[in-house]
Design a binder for these strands. Structure first.
Length: 447
DNA sequence: ATCGATGATTAAGG
DNA sequence: CCTTAATCATCGAT
């Protein structure tokens, strides 16, 4: 495009298209004195100003005369050749790049995410509706999943409509570049390409534009559109990734466990406070009871342990409560019941099912805390109170702690000593806690 | 809007 | 794999 003035110049000179103008230009280039040049420019400007005065017919006739000039084809070819050598050789270098690995990666990913592939199912809206309609307990999960799918299909739709615009199909400049195009789908790329092609063909009547050059231009356009496509794919990938992280990252859709599950977990925790490492079976059982996964149980215990250890005081009340509960269920049958043989939690929330006192150490601890503060004793009843009394007695004998501060301090010897935690407990996951040797805990306590 | 509680993830160590 | 410790991101109450 930028060569236009020069080419026009060439035409003017070579073909005498505009006698007056050519004359002056020749004069201008030949003359060396500034005086004459200035005058030439003035003349040229004058002519340019008056060029619109010429009738259209006259211009057309002149153009026609140009086109039909006998020297035109030869000159045209020569000029094309020269242009080929000078201008086009510069950018002939980067042709036919190999398939971009990044593009392939993007394609693969889009395919894997179901964005690029064929539409599946009868429209995801229906699927989403169906999933949402199932309702019930699992509704939360499936609803979010369907929401995810709906969003994904939205992305997918945008992607496809956009992609179609930029897709390039069969623009075949057959033979000499004046060939016919076939199967032209109407989209931005093809429209633009044909437009440019037509424009260049039109101009090739007045400018030296070889068919080869048109072809090259087409390929340049295609490259540009390819890069647009690439960008589209890239941003689609990004969108999918964001969507994924938004919906599939469990952290982001965290739901608190329901109260019952928390109760069960807490009961297990506080009744095994000396060694709160449930075995694999225990975890499975807890998971089943709480309707959560085993790894969620593991997470819960991991979090609980660390948070309990970090701030025991904060958990006192909770500890009291669960310990008291355990104690109640244990004492209410007024028997030192041995464990149920399964690694089950002491008692399932609220029900008077399995009364078991996991170990006396824990009870001891719980009562210590009762001794300390804030326990109102409402539902517990007299037998607990008596135990409190007894233990208070014991405590006062052994340690001499008598105020609420003592309670929190008394927790630590349980197993968490100042040096760091339950670490001297038996190998965590290999111990099925309910079948523990009672003595060990006591010895722990006495430390 | 803010803030503590909480489930999940990550890094480091075994 | 397991753990701990730190951290993230959300929930839920205020």
């Amino acid at each position: 495009m930028d060569e236009q003035p020069r080419l026009m110049h060439s035409h003017g000179v070579g073909m005498a298209g505009h006698p007056g103008l050519a004359q002056h230009m020749q004069d201008g280039t030949a003359g060396t004195d500034g005086e004459g040049r200035k005058q030439d420019i003035g003349d040229i400007l004058q002519q340019i100003m008056t060029i619109t005065d010429q009738s259209l017919d006259e211009a057309q006739a002149r153009k026609h005369a140009l086109n039909c000039h006998r020297m035109k084809p030869a000159l045209f070819n020569v000029l094309c050749e020269i242009k080929e050598k000078t201008v086009l050789s510069i950018r002939g270098a980067q042709e036919e790049e190999p398939p971009d690995p990044q593009l392939m990666r993007l394609d693969n990913m889009l395919l894997a995410e179901g964005v690029a592939g064929p539409e599946k199912g009868g429209g995801s809206a229906a699927a989403a509706a169906a999933a949402a309609a199932t309702g019930g307990i699992g509704a939360d999960n499936s609803a979010e999943h369907s929401d995810y799918r709906a969003k994904l299909s939205q992305i997918r739709q945008i992607y496809h409509t956009e992609l179609e615009k930029y897709e390039q199909l069969d623009i075949v400049p057959t033979g000499g570049g004046y060939g016919q195009r076939q199967n032209l789908k109407k989209n931005a790329c093809n429209e633009f390409t044909t437009h440019v092609m037509n424009l260049l063909r039109e101009q090739s009547r007045t400018r030296p534009i070889s068919p080869k050059e048109i072809e090259r231009m087409v390929s340049i356009i295609h490259r540009k559109f390819s890069s647009i496509q690439m960008q589209l794919k890239q941003s689609t990938c990004e969108a999918v990734m964001i969507l994924r992280s938004r919906f599939l990252d469990a952290r982001r859709k965290r739901r608190n466990f329901n109260k019952q599950a928390t109760e069960i977990l807490n009961e297990y925790f506080y009744s095994h406070l000396s060694n709160p490492y449930p075995s694999e079976e225990a975890k499975e059982e807890l998971a089943k009871k709480c309707s959560i996964t085993v790894s969620q149980v593991s997470n819960w215990f991991g979090n609980k342990r660390i948070r309990y250890k970090k701030n025991i005081g904060k958990f006192q009340e909770e500890a009291n409560m669960y310990a008291a509960r355990t104690a109640v269920s244990a004492t209410s049958v007024s028997a030192h019941g041995s464990q149920a043989n399964s690694p089950s939690t002491p008692n399932s929330a609220g029900s008077a099912g399995s009364f078991n006192m996991s170990n006396s150490g824990d009870l001891f601890m719980s009562v210590q805390s009762l001794n300390g503060d804030s326990y109102q004793g409402g539902q517990v009843g007299a037998n607990i109170q008596s135990q409190v009394d007894t233990l208070r007695h014991v405590i006062s004998q052994t340690g001499g702690y008598s105020d609420s501060l003592a309670a929190s301090q008394m927790y630590s010897p349980q197993g968490i000593n100042t040096n760091g935690g339950w670490q001297d407990a038996p190998t965590p996951s290999s111990v099925t806690s309910p079948t523990e040797g009672p003595g060990s805990v006591h010895s722990d306590t006495s430390n």
